[in-house]
């Protein structure tokens, strides 16, 4: 029986004429050897391509050795830029946060001195804060005490306002 190795070689390259394809398929359906050849040619094609790709990459990368310093410095500066941007972005956020706490404290300091400092009562709702002259130290200790006595881990601005009013 005639084998179709030559036609298979054309077929794996996509260069076999349409009318010959039918003949080849019909033959391959019956011929195990030609199916085997077909499979081998496909594998050969794949492996050869890998071989060339590897070889060409190697040749291209030979030059990379010469310019390695520039490449490394390029990547290093790129990395440095990324880190710098991240730091800048991070710094911005932190500043914003500090500004927030400052605002909180501003609210806290607008408070009234209580005569029964230390005794803490909670009011159901925050009321308008009246301003009174008070020593800063007293106020601070009061706030700290109150904060320490809070059961929850989360202290909100409202809690602080409550405390100030509660000791009225």
């Amino acid at each position: 029986m005639k084998h179709y190795d030559f036609e298979i070689s054309l077929f794996v390259d996509g260069e076999l004429a349409e009318e010959d394809k039918e003949k080849l398929f019909a033959h391959m359906a019956a011929c195990k050897e030609c199916r085997n050849t077909f499979e081998e040619y496909l594998r050969l094609k794949e492996k050869s391509k890998d071989f060339f790709i590897q070889k060409m990459d190697k040749l291209k990368n030979k030059d990379a050795g010469k310019n390695k310093f520039y490449k490394i410095s390029f990547y290093a500066s790129a990395a440095a830029a990324v880190i710098l941007i991240m730091l800048l972005a991070g710094g911005k956020e932190r500043t914003a946060y500090i500004a927030k706490t400052e605002v909180k404290y501003d609210t806290v300091y607008v408070s009234e001195k209580s005569e029964s400092a230390g005794q803490i009562k909670k009011l159901p709702a925050p009321q308008a804060v009246k301003k009174k002259e008070t020593s800063k130290q007293d106020e601070d200790s009061k706030i700290i005490e109150y904060v320490m006595s809070l059961p929850s881990e989360k202290i909100t601005e409202a809690d602080l306002v409550k405390q100030e009013n509660g000791s009225m």
Partner: peptide
């Protein structure tokens, strides 16, 4: 030529 190379390499 391509056919011959393939035959040899297989």
């Amino acid at each position: 030529k391509l056919y011959r190379v393939r035959q040899r390499l297989r």
